[in-house]
Amino acid sequence: MYPAISIIAFSTLSGAGFGLMIWLGLGFGSDEQLSAWVSLIIAGGLAAGGLISSIFHLARPDRAWRAFSQFKSSWLSREGVMALATFAVFGIYGLTWLLTENRPVGLGLLMSLLAFTTVFTTAMIYTQLRTVVHWHTPLTPLVFISFSISSGGITLIAIQTILAGGQLELRTLVYGLIPLIFAGVVKAIWWQRAAHTQFETPGTATGLEHLGKVHLLDRPSGAPTWLTKELVFVVARRRATALRRICLAFGIVAPLVLGLLAWNSPSLLLTAILVFFSLVMHLIGIFAERWLFFAEAEHVVATYY
């Protein structure tokens, strides 16, 4: 599958934004006004930035509003509706927090649930496709959700630590360390499954297997088409192993190491810097992971080519 930057940015950024909303809604993070302003702006900004990025993937963005109509049957439509609902509750929750200096618990839990569901529906857009066997597994929503929670958690740690002038609190490990390791393990299992998936062959795809070994003699067109560029993308597959290492090194190992260094750092300034870079590394890692998610995925139509 062609790894379009607009879609990769969409699921990475909105994943982190909705992940942060999940943590905030559960009552994590400092209650102070400054912290509230910063966390809410970053959560809303990341989620909205991701959603706006996804619009650039459309050939007719002027008709994007129509995507809210088919929630009964379409996961993409459900994703749009859930994102809108999450934003509505997020807006009310944020305003209440900022104006009353109180965090409404019930509304917060609702916001967490909606943000969680939005990430799930995003993942289901890919999971539902029987045509891409790499994606068609319950592990895919688990990967999306765990990376969303880990990136949201690390964003919250970065906000808290920087606002506290470099004071890294022990309890922040709950939303940093554990989700990070969990996400790494889930993705490793996902890759393990992907390595053992059964693909169609030209024989099974044409239904001519009983006649012998089927292989393509002549393509339908001499030059690449939209279809082959979109579905038969094969550029990165040779480099997949190297990219997976980058993804794990940046996405999981680097944030862990930087986090531990920050914990033992001699100066508060250095702690704040290290925590910030562990967030940057984690996001780069998820970008690489999402890029591979598309580039490695083999669409069944590729067996005809």
Binding site: L76, T131, L227, L231
Partner: peptide, 21 residues
């Protein structure tokens, strides 16, 4: 009504849909 997201072409196992450029 089509917004050109291309998801239907991804869902089709037979490569029957093409997004007009």
């Amino acid at each position: 009504a089509c917004m050109g997201c291309g998801l239907c072409a991804w869902a089709c196992p037979y490569g029957a849909r093409e997004l007009d450029q």
